[in-house]
């Protein structure tokens, strides 16, 4: 007996909201990256759930691609984080506000 698709969606939304919560409340850039990862994976859950719902494999393939993109994002994100640290001696996202205007 398969689980109803809306519970998958609920799960994905919960995951997304948790990630969002992290982004909105945290100041550590590393935690930012993790939160973003959570949100990406929320999207993955949705993709896979709806692939099953529609009986089509495309969603699953896209989930794989999303993972690859997440890896790329993390690579760049960590690089930025390093530079951030090197320039500000801190990974607090509230510190580098000099580029606004």
């Amino acid at each position: 007996m398969a689980v109803e698709v809306q519970y998958y969606v609920l799960l994905s939304m919960a995951l997304f909201s948790i990630g969002l919560f992290g982004i909105l409340t945290r100041r550590n850039a590393l935690l930012f990256l993790m939160s973003v990862e959570l949100m990406l994976n929320a999207a993955n859950i949705n993709l896979i759930a709806f692939a099953f719902y529609h009986g089509n494999l495309t969603g699953q393939v896209f989930a794989l691609f999303t993972m690859a993109l997440a890896a790329a994002e993390v690579a760049i994100g960590l690089g930025i984080l390093l530079v951030l640290y090197r320039n500000f001696r801190d990974v607090d996202v509230t510190v580098p506000t000099t580029m606004r205007w």
Partner: peptide, 26 residues
């Protein structure tokens, strides 16, 4: 700001629970 996230979850959950998806094709 976290309240926003929670609020968003509540809203989306409300919408999802109000939606009837029907059975999965599998």
């Amino acid at each position: 700001p976290g309240v926003l996230a929670v609020g968003l979850f509540g809203l989306m959950a409300l919408i999802v629970l109000n939606t009837s998806f029907g059975g999965s094709q599998g």
